[in-house]
């Protein structure tokens, strides 16, 4: 039996899909909060090599989902055409990423964690969210000037297995190996930060 998704059935806008999305959001919010991401200090700790929770949580999540996805595909349970694939548009994604990183470390939040922070009573998270809404409108206002840049480096659905000429399983294994390396490094950095704090 092949799993069928709301996206695959062109029903992502249906009432049932909205309810499922809401429930998934609850789980998303619980895990973010339990990870400690209702705290800006903890979130931005990675940029000062003090608290590496962001890297550990992100890489664990990516590897878990990527392995699960490829296992379901390999087992013949899921066809990747059932999952919306993100398009690569290199220039705006690199420039947007750089700006986003500056915004993240300056504001102390990213959009998802700011929702959790606001729900935890952080007034700074609420300020970040309101400003992020304004920033989005600013982008829309600048759209006439930015619309051609927003397509710069467009390559369609480009994914690492094709780009690197490697089987998807091998790419996922490489990502998992990279994650393990990042975990070892993170634990060492945190041990060093603790030693410095206590000395």
């Amino acid at each position: 039996m092949i799993l069928s998704t709301f996206f695959g059935a062109d029903l992502l806008g249906s009432a049932s899909a909205l309810v499922v999305a809401g429930l998934l959001g609850v789980a998303f919010g619980v895990f973010l909060e339990q990870a400690g991401f209702g705290s800006s200090r903890r979130l931005t700790g990675i940029f000062y090599l003090q608290d590496m929770a962001v890297l550990k949580v992100m890489m664990s999540a990516i590897v878990t989902a990527a392995v699960g996805l490829r296992v379901l595909v390999a087992a013949g349970l899921l066809d990747l055409s059932q999952v919306h694939q993100l398009e690569t548009v290199l220039a705006p994604q690199v420039v947007g990423g750089l700006l986003f990183g500056v915004g993240f470390v300056t504001g102390g939040w990213c959009p998802g964690t700011a929702l959790v922070g606001a729900a935890s009573g952080r007034a700074d998270a609420l300020a970040f969210l309101a400003a992020a809404g304004l920033g989005s409108l600013g982008f829309a206002a600048a759209w006439p000037a930015l619309s051609s840049f927003a397509r710069e480096g467009a390559c369609g659905v480009c994914a690492l297995p094709e780009t690197l000429g490697m089987p998807a399983g091998l790419v996922v294994a490489a990502v998992a190996a990279m994650a393990l390396g990042a975990f070892v490094l993170s634990e060492r950095l945190e041990a060093r930060a603790r030693a410095r704090a206590s000395s």
């Binding site: 998303f28 986003f100 915004g103 504001g107 959009p111 400003a131 920033g135 989005s136 690492l160």
Partner: peptide, 29 residues
């Protein structure tokens, strides 16, 4: 930070959730 992150996430078509986590797991370039 919010102004920058809001603007940048529209430019990039997502944020730490929609791009880094989701696209990361989909192995998107």
């Amino acid at each position: 930070g919010g102004l920058l992150a809001g603007f940048a996430s529209r430019m990039a078509g997502g944020c730490t959730s929609g791009q880094a986590l989701t696209g990361g797991a989909l192995l998107s370039d």
